[in-house]
Simulated scan of single mutants.
Amino acid sequence: MKIAVGIIGIGISIFVMLQAMAITGLGGLAEEEAMQQAGSVGVLVALLMFVASAFTFGLPKVAGVIFIVAALLAFMVSGDFPDMGVWGAIALVLGFLAFIAARKTANTIKA
């Protein structure tokens, strides 16, 4: 399960990064400060999701915490950048799956 969460997280973080960079650029062109700031936070969310995905392979508990932090940031800017609500929900699900993977790994090590 750790491998699946990591691969899915890396793939989604790439999409989030591309979309957030486009929103940041368009916000700058349109001179809309709120959209530009929301896009910048979106880039941070994408970076956090990528880092969390990398941590999923070795430290799934740490990855779960980072995914949840990314989800909270995404929910904070979802008013100005509505797609971040979707990405935040996906990050939240990936965070909980990382915690489940950590528990399964701990149970197999004890057995």
Rank of each mutant, 00 (worst) to 15 (best):
Ala70Leu: 06
Leu92Ile: 08
Lys2Phe: 01
Met21Ile: 11
Ala106Ile: 06
Gly25Lys: 09
Met21Leu: 14
Glu33Phe: 11
Ile23Glu: 03
Gly39Leu: 03
Met76Asp: 05
Leu44Ser: 14
Met21Val: 10
Val77Asn: 07
Ala102Arg: 06
Ser40Cys: 08
Ala52Trp: 12
Ile109His: 11
Ala34Cys: 02
Met76His: 02
Trp87Ser: 10
Ile8Asp: 00
Thr108Lys: 13
Gly25Leu: 11
Phe67Val: 14
Gly6Pro: 04
Ser40Thr: 14
Gly28Thr: 07
Ala102Ile: 02
Ile7Trp: 02
Val43Thr: 13
Leu47Asp: 03
Met21Arg: 09
Gly58Leu: 07
Val41Tyr: 10
Glu33Asn: 13
Phe96Gly: 14
Ile100Glu: 13
Glu31Ser: 15
Met21Gln: 11
Ile90Trp: 02
Gln36Pro: 02
Ile7Tyr: 00
Ser40Leu: 13
Leu92Pro: 08
Gly11Ile: 00
Leu26Thr: 08
Phe75Val: 10
Ala106His: 14
Ala91Pro: 09
Arg103Asp: 15
Ile109Ala: 15
Asp80Leu: 07
Ile10His: 02
Leu26Arg: 13
Leu18Met: 14
Met35Thr: 15
Val5Tyr: 00
Ala52Ser: 08
Lys104Cys: 04
Leu26Pro: 03
Phe50Gln: 01
Val45Gln: 11
Gly6Lys: 01
Ala20Phe: 10
Gln36Ala: 12
Gly11His: 02
Ile100Gly: 04
Leu97Ile: 09
Phe57Ala: 00
Phe96Arg: 01
Phe50Tyr: 10
Ala102Asp: 15
Val51Arg: 02
Leu26Gly: 09
Ile8Gly: 00
Asp80Val: 09
Val16Tyr: 01
Leu48Trp: 05
Met49Val: 04
Thr24Pro: 07
Leu94Ser: 12
Ile12Ala: 06
Thr108Tyr: 12
Gly42Lys: 09
Asp80Thr: 11
Glu33Cys: 05
Met21Ser: 14
Gly6Met: 06
Leu92Glu: 03
Asp83Val: 10
Met1Tyr: 05
Val86Ala: 07
Ala91Asp: 06
Leu97Cys: 10
Ile3Asn: 03
Ala30Trp: 04
Ala70Arg: 11
Val77Arg: 04
Gly64Asp: 12
Gly9Phe: 03
Thr56Lys: 01
Ala4Asp: 00
Thr56Arg: 03
Val43Asn: 12
Phe81Asp: 08
Ile109Pro: 04
Leu29His: 12
Ala20Tyr: 09
Leu92His: 09
Gly42Trp: 04
Ile8Tyr: 00
